[in-house]
């Protein structure tokens, strides 16, 4: 709490609403872009250029029936989407959008981040890992074998890639010597870590795609296959919350990538938040590009990539970084 309780609460609310709006319009951007990647138009019916599409989607989702399977564990079934959503938004809360800003016309200064502790990165990882429970609980509480197997498959994937992900991030931590986002961003003033940590960046990126369940690693959802994953039994707004949590996770991981490897909110000419948004946008663009290009991997290929490729490469990167930091 750098700015006092009330200001922090206001900032949190602003960030949460901006995040939701950003998410809503990123779904539009994604559909539009994927359309263009495939020489289609994408949504263009609701409003000019289909701009009202996210709102129409929301309206549709709200109208749907809220069904609960008879054998389901009711409380957990209802709670699961909320857990997923809360963790997704919570993890984004620690992202820095700049250091200190002065409000124009006054001499008030505010910090462009909600909180920064000496363990920020760990906190984000912790909240992110709590998000797994949304999937697992959702799969289990539905009391359906498809949902349960989908949940277990999702967890197996996430846990496998979490290892490589963390190892890739540790390289940055060693180089920056800190777990605080502000210090990590400040340490990249002269050179973005994407250059010295290129190997780590590759591992981070692949693992992030898998962590956020994006294609080609979207086995948990696998919308082309017959049965969906852990959310087989969910419909309407509850399903929408799972989908939103997944997309917000992708945004959070993009923001994390921007902070860890692209210098975070720093950049010439433009203010910090704009740079941050641009960098997040660049990550998301590549994610969408990948989705439009690559076919989905098989489950055994997924595990093979995670354990036999990413993990050794991440370890090698860590070793090289450690050697470089000590002897250079």
């Amino acid at each position: 709490m750098v700015d006092g309780v009330i200001l922090t609460i206001i900032k949190s609310l602003v960030l949460a609403s901006v995040l939701m709006g950003f998410f809503a319009y990123m779904t539009w951007v994604e559909r539009k872009l994927i359309g263009r990647f495939q020489a289609r138009y994408g949504p263009n019916r609701v409003g000019p250029y289909g701009l009202m599409q996210p709102i129409a989607d929301l309206g549709k989702m709200l109208q749907k029936e809220n069904m609960i399977p008879e054998m389901a564990h009711r409380k957990l079934y209802i709670a699961a989407p909320f857990i997923a959503m809360t963790c997704a938004i919570g993890a984004f809360g620690l992202m820095p959008f700049g250091d200190v800003a002065t409000i124009p016309g006054t001499d008030w200064t505010i910090h462009l981040y909600i909180a920064d502790t000496s363990v920020s990165l760990l906190v984000v990882a912790a909240i992110g890992s709590l998000g797994f429970y949304g999937l697992m609980i959702g799969g289990w509480a539905s009391s359906s074998k498809y949902a349960l197997l989908g949940g277990m498959r999702a967890i197996a994937q996430l846990v496998s890639y979490e290892v490589a992900f963390t190892l890739a991030v540790i390289g940055v931590i060693i180089q920056a010597g800190s777990l605080s986002f502000i210090s990590i961003a400040n340490a990249q003033e002269h050179l973005w870590y994407i250059i010295p940590q290129f190997l780590g960046f590759l591992v981070f990126f692949v693992a992030a795609v898998a962590e956020s369940n994006r294609p080609p690693f979207d086995l948990t959802e696998a919308d082309g296959e017959v049965v969906a994953g852990y959310h087989t039994e969910y419909g309407g707004m509850r399903y929408a919350m799972f989908a939103a949590a997944e997309f917000i996770n992708a945004i959070t991981l993009s923001a994390l990538g921007a902070v860890l490897f692209l210098g975070g909110p720093s950049g010439p000419f433009l203010p910090g938040p704009i740079w941050m948004l641009l960098k997040i946008g660049a990550f998301l663009f590549v994610l969408i590009w990948i989705r439009a290009t690559l076919p989905r991997v098989r489950f055994d290929q997924l595990m093979k990539i995670g354990w036999k490729v990413l993990l050794p490469v991440a370890t090698l990167n860590l070793l090289l970084t450690a050697v470089a930091v000590v002897y250079l």
């Binding site: 263009r36 990647f37 495939q38 020489a39 290009t293």
Partner: peptide, 21 residues
């Protein structure tokens, strides 16, 4: 091949959609 695939999709980004409305 992957690079080729990425370039193909990227080229499509600037192509006029062939969708019939």
């Amino acid at each position: 091949n992957q690079v080729k695939g990425f370039s193909t999709t990227f080229r499509h980004l600037f192509q006029k959609p062939i969708t019939q409305q």
